[in-house]
């Protein structure tokens, strides 16, 4: 697996993925599963090091919205390329709950989905081991303009059409 950050290209993994059973490392940045998050929240919030959460795609972002300040990374799950629930989770986390940390797409990610994911606010992507990352990065700029407003905050085509009249930026 490789990690692609939207504006940086390939990056090194700096997070430790903890299973539910192994002891928590003392100070490293860790990503924990949702079960552990529910069971050991107090411990997790107290420890040093940054905290990341693996959010199952059937959990509503509303359920963690009051704890987002404690989270620096949320791992969104795409168990299959055609399971698109996490797109909605990403939009909600960014747009409604104002999550500012890293949103990472994990699982079955296709090159041709990167642009959709980025629009929903996902900024880091797990790529298959041998995927040509530079080639994949081109997918972000397949389209110059889009019709819908989304978490990326870009002006919509409709807004651009009426730039002069409405003063929208």
């Amino acid at each position: 697996m490789q990690l692609l950050k939207k504006d940086q290209g390939l990056i090194e993994e700096t997070w430790v993925h903890c299973t539910d059973l192994e002891p928590l490392p003392v100070s490293e940045n860790i990503i924990v599963g949702y079960g552990r998050w529910l069971n050991e929240q107090e411990t997790l919030l107290k420890r040093n090091g940054l905290l990341g959460l693996e959010l199952p795609n059937d959990v509503s972002p509303a359920d963690i919205s009051d704890k987002l300040d404690h989270l620096s990374l949320i791992l969104l799950d795409f168990p299959a390329f055609n399971d698109g629930r996490a797109y909605s989770q990403a939009q909600l986390l960014r747009n409604r709950y104002g999550f500012k940390g890293e949103l990472r797409a994990s699982g079955h990610v296709l090159r041709d989905q990167l642009a959709f994911m980025a629009r929903c606010g996902i900024d880091c992507f797990e790529l298959p081991l041998h995927a040509p990352a530079q080639e994949w990065s081109k997918a972000f700029s397949d389209f110059s303009n889009m019709y819908q407003g989304a978490a990326d905050g870009f002006a919509t085509i409709a807004q651009k059409r009426h730039l002069d009249q409405t003063g929208a930026e």
Binding site: D83, Y87, Q113
Partner: peptide, 13 residues
């Protein structure tokens, strides 16, 4: 039509 064209959130329903 325009709103639904390549809607980033609703393309893998």
């Amino acid at each position: 039509r325009q709103w639904s064209s390549l809607h980033p959130e609703f393309t893998f329903l």
